[in-house]
Write a protein that binds this DNA or RNA. Structure first.
Lengths: 229, 229
DNA sequence: CCGATGCCTTGACGTAGATCAAGAGATTTC
DNA sequence: GAAATCTCTTGATCTACGTCAAGGCATCGG
């Protein structure tokens, strides 16, 4: 599949005239990253942005003591590294491939030029950034106003639709990563999953399998209306 | 001072051709809010955005139990409520006037039209959203990876330049608000200020006065290289 | 098939910070 | 200028969660 095909399939570019797509395809540079490879590090200069074609990328912060907070996990069709590009400063966080990942890199100039030709591209990007701000708002709320069981319940309800097998589903990331996404550590996550299971909210099945037994209960937990015993 | 004058002075619109400014001035609606008045609430629909002319606005989240987390405090020249407008969903947080405040309201359509006429407006807005994302990243990092003394030290260093009187300066917000901005509560903030004072890092002077005695010490604290005893 | 390496779980313990409660200054109001 | 209200401080306690340490289960290479 050639570059133009790739780009045309990305929701972000849907509905754009063919010349625009061709122009972007010309400017784009495909890059492949192996699992665990660093895509960029906090503090580096951003001269453009990436678009995920395949795989998953985590964007994260590290504390001096080595604790990690995942800011978001991005999959196919989502842009990465655009904040540095638009604010004209360095990357505020690092990015790493969580699995074999293919990315397209777009230099800043090509993108700015595209906006000049078709301002609707700007509106799309504004919508993407606005959605991202909304997600960050939710994360801030979680970290500041909710406790871990609440956050976890929210996550489970949101990702119920992940990799299903039978009536259960599988977490699509290792538990250590989930802990880092929820702003906690693996030990705590493990304990809370066990408590949820013992209260009949969920059923654990092997390392990654989870079955939701009491959806309402989880929803109450997520909203802070209920607490674990 | 008429509307056009106001708009022309806002950094956000600087350098735009006169017709554009006139167009925006036509579309803008001035609104005045008293101290404490709600500008919009979480969950409402956003049909446009606001620009602060005078005063200060806080954007915040509330927990079911009533605890507040301030997301940011916006002053003259800064836009408010743009996330809802661009993402096409409801406001993700509430906004309230912290003092007598004058705002300009711009309906969504007028702004979109402006972008079509001059795409550079979109780039400015992208830069604003990107900077905001960066600030949220820092807040997430604070909440997840730093402890309160660290966050407070960072705040003091950033706002040293606020309202100065002599060699001290005054906090420009009440301590309860500062606590909410740092993701803690007034009692904890009070205790930590007292500890900083007893360690000779700062000197407290009345209700809002603060003098920084040991800037390096605060910087080490902010970076997590040092801890309070 | 078996040891090794990495992920996950469980237990005992420590601590930052929230909660509850009471008082001390400020600031406003009439 | 006294009363009332608001804001801040300080103390005693509680608790959610992190830390440290050890053991259980997987998956993988030989």
């Amino acid at each position: 599949m050639d570059m133009l095909q790739h780009i045309a399939l990305v929701p972000f570019f849907q509905g754009l005239p063919k010349e625009q797509l061709e122009q972007m395809a010309m400017a784009a540079l495909e890059q492949v990253f192996k699992k665990g490879q660093i895509i960029f590090s906090e503090g580096e200069d951003g001269t453009g942005f990436y678009l995920v074609l395949k795989g998953r990328v985590k964007v994260f912060k590290l504390s001096p003591e080595g604790k990690e907070q995942i800011l978001h996990i991005l999959g196919p069709g989502e842009p990465v590294g655009e904040v540095a590009m638009f604010s004209g400063e360095c990357f505020p966080a690092g990015a790493q491939a969580m699995e074999e990942t293919r990315l397209l890199f777009f230099p800043r100039e090509a993108f700015v030029e595209m906006i000049r030709r078709d301002p609707s591209v700007a509106l799309r990007m504004l919508a993407v950034l606005a959605k991202r701000l909304r997600k960050f708002t939710a994360l801030i709320e979680d970290l500041s106003l909710k406790e871990v069981p609440s956050r976890l319940a929210g996550y489970l309800l949101e990702h119920e639709r992940s990799v299903r097998t039978g009536s259960c589903f599988n977490l699509e990331i290792p538990k250590a990563q989930l802990a880092s996404l929820l702003g906690t550590i693996p030990e705590t996550l493990s304990r809370i999953l066990a408590r949820m299971a013992s209260e009949g909210l969920i059923q654990l099945d092997g390392t990654r399998g989870i079955r939701i037994l009491d959806k309402e209960g989880l929803e109450e937990l997520a909203q802070g209306l209920r607490r674990l015993a």
